[in-house]
Each structure stands twice: as structure tokens, then as C-alpha cells.
Amino acid sequence: MEAQDSSIETHDLTVIYNKKPAIWNIDFLLPKGKIIGIMGPNGSGKSTLLKAIMGITEPNIGYSKIFNKPLDEVRDRVSYVPQRQSVDWDFPASVYDVVAMGRFAKLGLLKRLTEEDKHIIKDSLEKVKMAPFANRQISQLSGGQQQRVFLARAIAQRADLYLMDEPFVGVDASTEEAIINLLKSLRDEGKTLVVVHHDLHTAQHYFEWLVMMNTRLVASGPAEEVFNEQVLTDTYGGTLTTLSKVANLLQEKSFPMRHK
């Protein structure tokens, strides 16, 4: 795969938390128009990777590109779905209010919602089957419904690339199925979907491309090639002891990873 055909390219991406690498030298190209899973054990830096790609966390080393361009040039083509638990669902807002946030980037500071925006919001709500709940207060939603609201907000952005952080966590079976069908229909429209996921059982059925990581990149490639015992052992079978010793030393001695 060449860089110009890729949806996401990361180059030696490294993020350091507390002087210790949370992700280390992640370097890959992801294809377009596929459902891509990012997998790895807890604390392996999956969410950090998404945040670094979206510029929410500034990478200490390396860079990433989206559609072969810097993020800022293509921001309106990318949509990010944070972890559901990252927000306070007691916030006084309705389902409609939250989905409308998906249009804010295009509206700027003061412009009101146009008829078209309203249509898009409604349409997005229908796609996740939440239209009847449009006026429901978000604090009254179940976990699965909250997740659908987040997805509707992302759809309302009308992006080409969707980055989703653990959309399947804490949702009921019917929501899980609805989400995966939604992902497939988006893929059929030519969109790219990158999903952080941790359930190994479903991984093979959900994703066409897999990124396996554990702080470092273990493998990235078509699901049927990547999903084998060796890769799984490398990803989940404990950390590389030498690597984590070096990481601990960096932290202990406050050693800079790069210097000039």
C-alpha cells in the first residue's frame, strides 16, 4: 500500500505519559473503505493512539497523516467518537442537543441550524434508531442508547473517516448488532471506520483489517492474515520484559527519549 492510498498513516508515533511511553514507535498505513479494528490488552495504548491521531494528545515523537494530508487540512472529513464514559451524562441536554453538536464544526460560533442541518440530524437519529427519543434527556438513557447517540453525532458530521473508541463497551446485544450493521452500511458507502475493540471472539467477524498492539505495534494487516496464534501471543502473552524494563528506566531516571 502506498501512502496516497491510505486512510491513516502514522510515522514512529510515540506518546509519553509520566516520562514513560504509552505508545512507542507506532508506524503503519491503514487502507480506505474498510472496517478496521485496533486491538490489544488493557492499558496497551489503544485509546492513546486514537487521541494522538486526532491531535487530542500531542505526540512526543512522530506524526500522523489522514488521507495523506495533515489533520488540520482534512478535519472536516474525520469524525471522532470518544469513550462513552468520558463525558458526564448528567449534563442537562436532550438527545437532539447532543447530535446537533455534530454540526457545530460547520456552523462556527453564531450561525443557526439550517433546515439542511436539521434534516441531517433527524436522519442521523433514524440511522441509529433513536428518532423517537430525540427529546429525551440524556441522563435517562441506557448505556446502549448513549452509545447510539454518540454514533448519531458522528454520523451527523458527514465525515469520510470515523475513529471510534470502544463503542461496544457496556452495550446490550441488540445495540451491538445495530452498531455493527451501521458500520457495515457506512463502509458500503465508501467510508473508513477505525474501531478500538477488545473482544477477541467477535474481532474476526467484525473487522476486515486488524491492528494488534501492546504499547508497540505487533501487527497490522488483513484480518485473516493477522489473526493467528503467534500474533495473539505476542499481543496478549505478557509484555516484552526488556522493553518494559527500558521504559521503567526512562521514567526512573527521567531520561529523554529523544534529544538533540
Binding site: M54, G55, P82, F91
Partner: peptide, 11 residues
């Protein structure tokens, strides 16, 4: 206020 990381992702 509601969703800092989503806001950051919007730039």
C-alpha cells in the same frame, strides 16, 4: 464543557 475530547477533535 460537555465533551472535551470531541471538541478537541473538531479542532
Amino acid at each position: 464543557t460537555f465533551d472535551e475530547s470531541f471538541a478537541a477533535a473538531l479542532g
